[in-house]
Design a binder for these strands. Sequence first.
DNA 1: CGGGAAATTGATGACTTTCAAGGTGTGTGG
DNA 2: CCACACACCTTGAAAGTCATCAATTTCCCG
Lengths: 262, 262
Amino acid sequence: MFGTPLLAFPVKKTYPSLMRQQPNSLIQKSISCDSCSLNNVCIPNGLSKDEIDQLEMLVDKTVKIKKKESLYHSMDNIDGIYAIKSGAIKTSISNADGQEQVLEFHLPGDLLGFDAFNSGIHSCDATALEDTLLCKISMNDFDDLCSRLPGIRKEMMHQVGKEIAHNQSLLLSLGQQQTDERLATFLLEMSTHFQSRGFSGNEFVIPMPRQDLSNYLGMAVETLSRIISRMTEDGLINIDRRLVSILDMHRLEKLAHSSCEK
Amino acid sequence: MFGTPLLAFPVKKTYPSLMRQQPNSLIQKSISCDSCSLNNVCIPNGLSKDEIDQLEMLVDKTVKIKKKESLYHSMDNIDGIYAIKSGAIKTSISNADGQEQVLEFHLPGDLLGFDAFNSGIHSCDATALEDTLLCKISMNDFDDLCSRLPGIRKEMMHQVGKEIAHNQSLLLSLGQQQTDERLATFLLEMSTHFQSRGFSGNEFVIPMPRQDLSNYLGMAVETLSRIISRMTEDGLINIDRRLVSILDMHRLEKLAHSSCEK
DNA sequence: CGGGAAATTGATGACTTTCAAGGTGTGTGG
DNA sequence: CCACACACCTTGAAAGTCATCAATTTCCCG
């Protein structure tokens, strides 16, 4: 299937802790959905054994794209629904002038493609932040499953709802928070995300470069860099390249909620 | 049914043009969906005569809320789907500290309540900007219709998709545009909205106070006020209270797209 | 008609961006 | 395996944008 599976988060000697934090058990050759370590966050979540079997027959587990390549573009017809096995993908939109806004970062276990669920046409671009492996189910098959399996239909609704909720909270952040509060909010979200998947919520690796993160947070790269430096000086966090360590969760939460006297 | 129907946009002698721009034909006593002037933007859009009849039997056309009252709150169980006959409603979310972000302004013909479509629980607050009349269909009945009439199901998907698209474009605006560009973008959206409903795209009344608009656009009220003054001086627009006149559509579009040398 | 909310305007300062330069790490090719 | 080029990140200085505080005006509602 895959030649040599590419690592989601390259484990190097400079990041000794990663081996523990994000084991590459995520990145295996085409194992069955039933035994995939991500099945509790992926489509199979909540499905019966029988339903999973029906799903699995239709899944193409060999999709891969390289860093900086696109999975799909805005205005493309929807090809299928994807699940990320390893790697990371950003979705973004652009206006007529080419200004880009990153909408969301998708990590292993996340589903992708629901931005086209209603019209059949994608509303955003999906670009790989690193070499990425995915599972795919064609739109036809997915439609078919939806009509036959209520569990799948429900899961689709759930995914769309998640996307709406995410956009809403990002709007709140961009519209009402200061730059440092936005970063704090983002870090806490990432922390929660990793923790909910069994990893450390205090130390994790983020897959995106400063450029993409600053865009997502609606600020200049330099501003992001300065905030990181300041928060590091203040002992709130430590960020070495992509490795984030949260040193004072409590103060970070206060900052994210933004009102409390800082 | 309704005592004296409340006017969506009070027509006063200070706004002589409104009578032409936004006739109160929108605001009638319980007429049938079939003959409602909003049926081409409301649920009936695209439904067969028979389907509309089935729908109509289930619609409560007597819902009204007063200015500043809430239709529903975040965390409420969904009660039903609403269509605005007259008036205006804002949806917003708040964080733990009570900071609010306005997400969208809903005008006559718009549907409301889809923020709860997946979980059955509302993710945002819906508050009337003025006295508002609505049609309502209970969630049970709506579910039932969805299962029986594919047209309704499709319409629901369409509505949810619209909401996602709206949030995405607002994110782009908040994340990447300057304050004046954001206002220009908003005005153009309103212009398009009114034009698509048969009203003037150059002169229209917006239903929200400066406070809500500035919040929506992620800026201080004073900033909004200053931008309005500057754009008025520059001859781009004229805004008298809630009455917006677009004087130079072309330059406004250039501003909204934000790159072109201004 | 009066009280109060809503909107505007000015002055000031904080925050953020921009432009510029320098540093650090990575990947590739010799 | 090393060196170099390049991309990524950080830092500084200056300028610009926007928020805040305060005062005033306008308008709306009772």
